[in-house]
Design a protein around this nucleic acid. Structure first.
Lengths: 235, 235
DNA sequence: TAGATTGTTAATCGATTAACAATC
DNA sequence: TAGATTGTTAATCGATTAACAATC
C-alpha cells in the first residue's frame, strides 16, 4: 500500500514538474526584445519569419531563438518558420500585454512626470490611473491628465481601484515606506527607480529595480577601457 | 632562426594575454553595484569589511565578491579583509569616476529634462556642458543651467568642447542621425534612451542602450506568472 | 517527393560556487 | 603563534551553441 502511494507520488511529481519546467532568467529577460522586433516586423507587414532571418535581424543565434521560443511551446512550423502575427500575439500574451494591469506613479518629480508623459504604458496595455506625492503644492493638481493624490491615501486607493503596479520615483529614503503602502494596498509589482535594491517581505510581490546610475557607470568603465592607452599613462 | 622567432612570439603572446585577461561582462556589470555599497559603507564610517560581511549586505556569495575584485588586483589583505576607503577609491578609479568626462544631453523632452535635473552625473564626476534639440522654441533657452543649442551644431560643439559622452533622449527615428553627429564630434560613449539597439560603425565608440519598456514588460511577465493560478483560468 | 526549417538532444562554453593553501 | 580572511584553483552549475532527426 505504502509503496504504491510512493510510486504514485513520484509519478505525479514528474508530471507537474514537466508542466512547469521553470523558464530561465536569461530567457525571460530576452522576451521583451523579441516582442519589440516582432512588433516592428508586424508593422512592416511581414507575414512569416524563420529563426535564421530573425537571427540576422536581432544579432543572436538562430539556435537561441528556437530554444527560447520553445520554452513556451511550439510556436513555429517545420519547413515554414514562424507566423509573425501569431508569434507576436503569443509573446504579447506571455508578457501580460492583454491583462490591462492598472498602475500608479508615486513621486511627481522630474522622473515621475517624464514617465507620466510617455506612451510606454498604454503601448503595453497598462492603464495609469493616478499619481501620488507628498508635496501639498502638487497634490490636487493634474499631470498629463492624471490626478495627483496625497501619498497618505495610497494604500487605500490601490485597494479600491484594483491597482496592480506601482512605479516608484521617490527619493530612496522614502522608497521603503512607499513600497510598504503599495503592498498593503494589494499592489503586486513594483517598478523601482529609487536607486536602491528594494526589499519587500511578501514573496508574491515582484520588484524590478532600475539602476540608471549603474548603467551610466558601466558606460564610463567601457569608455575608459577603450580610450586607455591612447594617452600617456601616468600610473 | 625561424623556430626561435616562433618560440619568442608564443612567449610574448602569453605574457600580453596574461596582462589583459579580459574581465568578463558579468563582472563589469556588477562593478557599479560594488561602488554603490562601498560608498554607503564609507558614508557610514565603516573602515574595513570582509567579503563575508559584504556578502550578507549585498546578497551575493563571498566567493563571488573575492573572485570579482581579484580580476582587478589584490585589493584586500589576508586575515583583515578590505579597507573600505581604499577599495572604494580603487573601484572609483576603475569606473572612471575621476576622469571628469564631459557630457551633452541630446533631446530636451521630458526625459532629457528629467536627466538634466538629476545629480546622477556630478555624483560620478561627469560634467554636463550643454543640451541640444531641434525645436526652435527651446533652442537658446537654459534648462537647469544648461544652455540648449541646435542639434545642427552638435558635432562641431563636441569637437570644440572635448565632449566624451552623449546622452540620447530623442525619438528613435532621429537616434541614428544624432549618433552619427556625436561620433563625428569625437564622442566615445553614447547612453541611449531611444528604445532601439543603436548601431555605431566605429568599434571604439561604446554604446549603452537603456530599454525601460523592456524592464516594464519583464515586470508584467513576472507579475502574471505569480498571480496566475490565483484566478479562474479561462484559457 | 524534395527542400526547408523547426523542435530537441548533446556538446561546449562561461559564470558561479566551493574548497583550501597562502599569508597577514 | 593562532585566528581570520584573502587569493586562487578546482568543481559545479547554468546558459549558449551545434547538430540533426522529425515534420511540414
Amino acid at each position: 500500500m505504502e509503496s504504491i502511494n510512493n510510486i504514485k507520488g513520484t509519478f505525479e511529481k514528474k508530471i507537474s514538474e514537466e508542466k512547469k519546467t521553470a523558464v530561465s532568467k536569461a530567457v525571460i529577460k530576452r522576451l521583451p526584445r523579441y516582442h519589440r522586433y516582432l512588433g516592428e516586423l508586424l508593422r512592416s507587414d511581414k507575414l512569416r519569419i524563420s529563426s535564421g532571418e530573425l537571427s540576422d535581424l536581432m544579432n543572436v543565434t538562430a539556435s537561441q531563438i528556437r530554444q527560447d521560443l520553445n520554452c513556451f511551446g511550439g510556436f513555429g512550423q517545420q519547413g515554414y518558420g514562424y507566423n509573425v502575427k501569431y508569434l507576436y500575439g503569443k509573446i504579447s500574451e506571455l508578457l501580460g500585454v492583454n491583462e490591462g494591469y492598472r498602475a500608479v506613479i508615486v513621486g511627481a518629480g522630474n522622473l515621475g512626470r517624464a514617465l507620466a508623459a510617455t506612451h510606454m504604458f498604454e503601448r503595453r496595455g497598462i492603464v495609469r490611473v493616478a499619481m501620488f506625492d507628498n508635496n501639498p503644492r502638487v497634490v490636487g493638481t493634474k499631470i498629463n491628465d492624471l490626478p495627483v493624490y496625497h501619498v497618505n491615501t495610497l494604500a487605500e486607493y490601490c485597494k479600491a481601484e484594483n491597482v496592480k503596479i506601482g512605479v516608484l520615483t521617490v527619493p530612496k529614503e522614502a522608497a521603503d515606506d512607499v513600497a510598504k503602502k503599495l503592498v498593503a494596498g494589494g499592489v503586486m509589482g513594483i517598478w523601482n527607480f529609487a536607486n536602491m535594491e528594494l526589499v519587500v517581505e511578501d514573496p508574491n510581490v515582484v520588484v524590478e529595480d532600475i539602476h540608471l546610475g549603474d548603467s551610466l557607470m558601466k558606460l564610463c568603465y567601457e569608455l575608459k577601457i577603450k580610450t586607455e592607452g591612447d594617452v600617456e599613462d601616468d600610473g
